[in-house]
Design a protein around this nucleic acid. Structure first.
Lengths: 166, 166
DNA sequence: ATTATTTTTCAATACTATTTGAAAGTTCCA
DNA sequence: TGGAACTTTCAAATAGTATTGAAAAATAAT
């Protein structure tokens, strides 16, 4: 496959997968584009290569910076800002995980902690407490693991698991 | 908190979180409702309790059955179908994980395997191969772990990890 | 076979999220 | 200080998704 075609496929696919993950298509495409660009790109470059508007490009570049997936870089003698993606897949995974943990998992754990204390003695209430309690156990364990695990731990685990569980 | 209020909060919250995960609000709400119902519910029950249309209720009940999160149950002497959610949180997590792995992770791994073989010797192509290759390593490892890990493994891991990594 | 009940389908509609683009804002240089 | 270069904002337009509800299909009872 030729590079141009491969790049096209990659940004398209990344965009499509992202929508299934609750991340918007453009943000993912901008990310994909920066990921596979050897050099930092300007807003104009991004607009052109993905055929998106200035507003869209700007907004999603900011969002990616916010997620720590992209850095702003300044080129000597250039007034414009350039953007460069973090290329280390482990860091990418970590930043995405942290961000989602914060936005989605933590509020869920908090709510479940509250709901599992619903008072009452009838069968219905007991069933409710059971389910919310179980969910709380699971989600808070996942939360704890994500909170404490380091790059080394995860790498070790994935390596160990993928050989041992064979 | 009173049960009715707690149930309401739970279905609402489950619906909201779901949208962030690319699952539609109604499907998640139907799931939440069945999760916390002591008895199986009919389509009518679901429609009433969530204020949704027949078509919507029907479609999402089918989808949940497809995901193996809900079972159809027949009551003696009743013509209507009733629906009951799987209550075991581990099974729920497993079924959701399997389904998403199949729909999202596997196609991604497949695409990356192809892209990382893009030919060419210039810096740009090399950078492209590097990123897609790294992503392929990571995603296929995750895929392998999900494929092979059993309930026991995961429970063990979460327990061990949440104590050890403290 | 006819009728009553329940389930499924799907075109129309409503709703949500994303994107645009032009105007306003900022920064830097002459 | 004026103005060119660049960035940000945001109301309006568009695109994308979910929901409705009534009609059709399926199923079961008489």
């Amino acid at each position: 496959m030729e590079l141009h075609e491969a790049k096209e496929k990659f940004t398209q696919a990344w965009g499509t997968f992202a929508t299934q993950w609750g991340i918007n298509r453009s943000m993912a495409q901008v990310h994909a584009l920066l990921l596979i660009s050897a050099e930092p790109l300007s807003t104009e470059d991004v607009m052109e290569q993905l055929n998106i508007s200035r507003g869209n490009a700007n907004m999603n570049l900011r969002a990616l910076i916010d997620w720590q997936l992209v850095d702003k870089v300044l080129k000597a003698g250039e007034r414009r800002e350039f953007f460069q993606a973090e290329k280390d897949v482990w860091k990418i995974a970590t930043h995405i995980t942290r961000e989602r943990k914060k936005r989605e998992l933590e509020p869920m754990v908090k709510l479940l902690a509250e709901l599992k204390r619903t008072e009452g003695q009838n069968a219905e209430t007991k069933a409710f407490r059971q389910v919310t309690g179980d969910l709380h156990d699971l989600t808070s364990r996942i939360d704890a693991v994500l909170e404490r695990s380091t790059r080394r731990d995860v790498q070790w685990f994935l390596k160990a698991a993928s050989t041992l569980l064979r």
